[in-house]
């Protein structure tokens, strides 16, 4: 049992470090003009902890962990919808020159 859990932990650690390296390169390639949308999008995706909240809220029995799970689902949903929509609003404003001239 103990060996099994440590194995899972090491796999998690491997995934963690590789993801950090991917994050490093991907984020450096983000153009500085879009740093605000980057925060918006990272905000939305970090709410993927909703996955954990759903698992906690899943069972039918009404105990404290279910209530915690539902609160988690609720809070993370505010973030998911809010984060993606505000990012969409920001990104739809970044226009090219030619487009803008056509509008005028």
């Amino acid at each position: 049992m103990e060996a099994h859990t440590s194995e899972i932990f090491v796999i998690g650690l491997t995934v963690f470090f590789l993801a950090c390296i991917i994050g490093y390169y991907v984020v450096w390639s983000v153009t500085p003009a879009l740093h605000s949308p980057l925060m918006g999008v990272t905000n939305a995706i970090s709410s993927v902890i909703i996955v954990g909240a759903i698992l906690a809220a899943g069972p039918l029995d009404n105990d404290i962990s279910k209530i915690f799970g539902l609160i988690g689902v609720f809070l993370a949903s505010i973030n998911i919808f809010g984060g993606f929509i505000v990012t969409y609003r920001m990104l739809s404003m970044f226009k090219k020159k030619s487009k803008q001239n056509n509008q005028d």
Binding site: F9, V15, F17, C20, M39, T42, S46, I49
Partner: peptide
């Protein structure tokens, strides 16, 4: 999010948390 990912042994949470974490650190 990463910490929760480790608790639940969920790779999706670990990856996403690491992406967001490094993004914020670089900013």
């Amino acid at each position: 999010a990463c910490g929760i990912g480790f608790t639940l042994s969920n790779n999706l949470l670990i990856i996403t948390g690491a992406l967001v974490g490094s993004s914020g650190a670089i900013l």
